[in-house]
Computed example of a mutant assay.
Amino acid sequence: MSKADSDSTDFGYQRIPAAQKVERVGAVFRSVAERYDLMNDLMSAGLHRLWKRQTIGMARLRPGHAVLDLAAGTGDLTRLAMRELRGRGRMVMSDINEAMLSRGRDRLIDEGVLGVEYVLANVEELPFPDASFDRVIIGFGLRNVTDKARALQEMRRVLRPGGFVLVLEFSKLYLPGLTPVYDMYSFHVLPRMGQMIAGDSESYRYLAESIRMHPDQETLRDMMSGAGLEDCDYTNLSGGIVAVHRGYRY
């Protein structure tokens, strides 16, 4: 790889200087923050709620656990995790985007979800000591990270021995007959929906492109192993539209 290649990264289908990605992604999520929850429901026909419930079920949380929710957006996974903790333990909700984190905090407080810590942080440079958490969860956020390998290493670093990372992310369909329909929806319907609902087609075009550029199931599993996580595996959901990856620290 040339130095030029190593200093650039994907932004959807574009190649941009790596130093610009955080701000470019931040602009996308600042643009969509106000309609983020509505668009999630419309884009997935409500399936994202099922995927998140399944992820928290796989987390095997219990009262007393310390849990870190990264790229937490408006807090869906945090809210579900808090139910499992039952008022005992530690719940940290973190995002790099202040607009998303603020919206998530306001939403959870309005819903009566109290006792959550809110931390503005970059997944690649987590502001937590080693071995701080029993579970680290990231839902639909890893594909927006500039240096995924470094982010995965940071997730492992803050895990306690015996804990594990869960990565919920869009993935690669294993039912090839659905691909043309999925592509039509992603690149034609989704941007139009974004324009009508959120007044922003380009941000949703980026989101569709970022899904296609994200590593497939086997590649991400190997990346997690390369970051030092062990017994890495994954579970496909909805035909591989999304997958939940898991990796342990022993």
Rank of each mutant, 00 (worst) to 15 (best):
G139D: 09
M193Q: 07
D37K: 09
V181K: 09
Y204W: 12
A121T: 06
K172V: 10
I96N: 12
T78S: 14
R150G: 11
Q20I: 00
H188E: 09
R35S: 11
S238N: 07
V22T: 14
D200T: 02
N97A: 07
K52P: 03
M58F: 12
F11R: 03
A27M: 05
G177C: 08
E169L: 04
D130N: 14
R107H: 07
R83Y: 07
K3Y: 12
M1Q: 12
G57V: 05
A99G: 07
A243K: 04
G240W: 07
L207I: 14
V165P: 05
E34S: 15
T146H: 01
A208T: 04
R150C: 04
R90I: 02
G115Y: 08
D216M: 09
Q14V: 00
E230N: 01
K3Q: 14
L159H: 02
R192N: 05
R157L: 03
M193R: 08
R53Q: 15
Q195N: 15
T219M: 11
R79H: 14
R49N: 04
V22N: 11
S201G: 13
E218V: 12
R143I: 04
R103S: 13
W51S: 07
A27N: 13
G112S: 08
E169M: 07
D183V: 14
V145L: 10
E117H: 08
D69T: 10
T146P: 02
G89H: 11
